[in-house]
Design a protein around this nucleic acid. Structure first.
Lengths: 204, 204
DNA sequence: TTCTAAAATTGAGTCAATTCTGTTTTTATG
DNA sequence: CATAAAAACAGAATTGACTCAATTTTAGAA
């Protein structure tokens, strides 16, 4: 069934994303003009808008790539967590944080976060919310796993705890991308310190 | 010393803010055109840009009004907190949440949040970060107070705990303003449920 | 192969934020 | 009071995201 049209379409999608990723990194999100992306991808401006509702959605496609890789990497930790609550949390969160700047610069993250709050009902806004939820779910899954391994108390409200841990980490990550000078090790240390309070409360 | 120039300046500032607040509420942030704000405030477009770096900074001035009132109201709770850790937190956070939609609509909050992450170094971006920090400090102050009253364990890391509580609340608030259908009582209940885990860990 | 409808592409045009430049108003000074 | 420097103002010009009507390309039937 792979007709000419479908192949061309996939190819144009790829070219647009590649061009945008390159220009976003080089010139920043605002600095990367749609005309320039169109020229680099060898399509017209109109075609870009045929494929994406707006400039933000192009960035959104790149963010999705990043977060889905992170979720994938996280599955390993949930399946076989370190035998200590603090380490287990730190390992999972470490994966999220360490991976975060692989495809996206801080500036790109800032734009992505801004757009997702500005336009929560746009395709990208909804996708971003879904990604957040998926990360929250993965943290919840880790807690369930730790409860099954009798490392976390059975009477803990796992759903609320998962949200609490994700929300705190996410807010710290937002502050992290807002300050260009902020470093990854500091971020991890700060989150670890905050989680220590929780670990004391929930560990068996 | 109050020369004509200074008085006119203050007056123009006030007129611009009033015009913007009205139009933002009526037409939404995007819908309120700078030309319309200028016309309503009886100044020219150029003058607005002489007073504010960009449209976002106008919104920023309004947000500051709101948050400073909230901080003020919070002081009362810190000074005389309810004699129960859970209630004390709930009362303070309740003030923040209940007050939040007084001057600002959800749409205005979304824009404000978006701008503060998008341009963290703009005047507004920095002011917003300072406001967040002030709220965090107030929560920390409440915890100190509760420790002094022997309602919270002395060995708790108050700084980390304050951040944890603020970050979680703030993230919940962000999700709240992103969903127009979300209601204040639900938000308060969800945050209370999350804080319950912490309260169990820190109460004497 | 030829033709037609549907799908996709194109780029000139629109709209609104922001910038720029010349003009007006205020202040300070003699 | 005059007057020159400084500050503030006005609104036309610029810029860049996004739209839309006209054109081109593809798929499939005859």
């Amino acid at each position: 069934m792979s007709g000419l049209r479908a192949r061309q379409k996939a190819d144009r999608h790829r070219r647009i994303i590649e061009a945008a990723a390159e220009l976003f990194r080089e010139a920043g999100y605002e600095g990367a003009k749609i005309e320039a992306i169109a020229a680099q991808a060898e399509v017209s401006v109109g075609t870009i808008y045929n494929y994406y509702e707006n400039k933000g959605d192009i960035l959104g496609a790149i963010v999705s790539l990043e977060v889905n890789e992170v979720l994938n990497a996280g599955q390993g930790v949930v399946a076989r967590p370190p035998a200590n609550v603090g380490d287990a949390l730190d390992t999972l969160i470490g994966i999220y944080i360490e991976h975060s700047l692989h495809y996206l610069s801080k500036e790109m993250w800032r734009q992505a976060m801004a757009i997702s709050t500005q336009l929560p009902d746009s395709p990208f806004g909804q996708a971003y919310t879904a990604l957040d939820r998926a990360l929250t779910e993965q943290i919840r899954a880790l807690i369930s796993r730790l409860q099954a391994l009798a490392l976390v108390r059975q009477d803990i409200d796992g759903a609320a705890l998962g949200e609490l841990i994700f929300n705190n980490m996410n807010m710290m990550f937002i502050e992290f991308v807002k300050r260009d000078a902020a470093k990854i090790p500091e971020l991890r240390a700060a989150v670890r310190r905050q989680n220590r309070i929780l670990v004391a409360a929930i560990a068996v």
